[in-house]
Amino acid sequence: MLARAQIWWTIFTMCVAERLAYRGDFVLGTTMRFLPMITQIFLWTAVFASSSNGKLVGFTRNDIIAYYLLTMVARAFSSMPGLASGIARQIRDGEIKKFLIQPIDLIGFSLLARMGHKLVYYGVAIGPFALVFYLCRGFFPGWPPAEYLAAFLLSLVLSFLLGFFLEASLGLAGFWTLEISSLLFVYMLFNFFFSGHMFPLEILPEPWRTWVGWMPLKYLAYFPAAVFLQKIPADQLWQEVGVLMAWTTFFYFLSRRLMHAGFRRYSGYGG
């Protein structure tokens, strides 16, 4: 048990060190990511200028700006750049073999690596994030009550896990198709539109609204932001967190099934 924990710890510190090497690039990249916020602020100011009561689908202009900022926090947890494509590449070029030989679990290793990367990312990104949120504090209605805050923090952690297992499952589809780039693009498209990254999902008309309400994608961006802004009614709050947990569990088991099934049909030759 102790030896096992030591392996995991080694992997984790290795990934942290790997990530720290490019920290300069990181700070610049993270700060630049906020640039589109500037146009969003101007765009929504113009949109709300045309509204008579200053509210659209229950959002004021400030709510919308705060919403976009909060989805950036959510996506800092849930987005997994390069995870699915990385797994598919390892399957394609045979690197996956090392997980068959070494006593390391593919999904476990990837998860630790991702956690290492994310932790370094937060360590660096907290600067730009804090600065932007401080500058934009006027857009926020204030801190939510403790219950909502707890649900918000929990949903962030869960959205990280959901995003991880969901994308790992996509990547593991590479055992069957080798080339998953078109699958990933479809996913990206849906993700952008239906995760709430592009706009608050309240804007969608029925029946889309209801469908999207049950899909896992909304937990990757919309849900944590909506919780912080208290757009989720109190009686549905924990029910929604439950659905998020259910989806996370589903994709956890799915990814493990896919991995084992994939290993059974995988054949590696040479090198």
């Binding site: 045309s50 509204s51 009561n53 509210k55 008309p205």
Partner: peptide, 14 residues
């Protein structure tokens, strides 16, 4: 997206 935004702006009554 913009169709939805305009739809909302029309829907607010004025």
């Amino acid at each position: 997206f913009y169709t939805l935004v305009y739809r909302l702006m029309y829907a607010d009554g004025d």
